[in-house]
């Protein structure tokens, strides 16, 4: 049973007037109400109770990681590391996730 307050990410397949077809992955498709402007085929969106309530911005995935980075670096510096060394360590940890995000973004602009 789908909870009504539950929003899930999905990919837009087709936009038709005030509705859009979306793919939740794994072969689950739905026609939903479009309540967000500027949604296009291929966009990653949030679907809630049968409506697209917003677009997901993949480039912003990195922003959440940046929030973590800022905290982790600041604490490491408090702990006695130099700023450069703290940044190097945290960036090393983040590098793989950053690369994934960039890969997906690159694929999005090509397709």
């Amino acid at each position: 049973m789908v909870g009504m307050c539950w929003a899930v990410p999905a990919r837009v397949i087709k936009v038709e007037g005030i509705t859009a077809q979306v793919d939740f992955g794994g072969g689950a498709y739905k026609t939903v109400v479009l309540v967000t402007e500027g949604v296009r085929e291929g966009d990653l969106v949030l679907v809630h109770a049968g409506a697209i309530i917003g677009k997901m911005r993949i480039e912003e995935f990195i922003e959440s990681l940046e929030l973590y980075r800022e905290m982790a670096v600041a604490l490491a510096v408090e702990g006695g590391l130099s700023k450069e060394e703290a940044e190097r360590r945290v960036d090393e940890q983040l590098s793989v996730w950053r690369r994934w995000v960039e890969e997906v973004m690159g694929a999005g602009s090509e397709g």
Binding site: P9, A10, R11, G25, L44, M56, I58, F61, S64, L65, Y68, Q93, W97, W100, V101, E103, V104, G106, A107, G108
Partner: peptide
């Protein structure tokens, strides 16, 4: 790119199944 990697799987890999973070 591996076909499996898209925005949806990225969410799972970075924000869900990420023990190190």
């Amino acid at each position: 790119r591996p076909r499996s990697m898209d925005g949806l799987s990225l969410i799972k890999r970075v924000f869900r199944n990420n023990r190190s973070l």
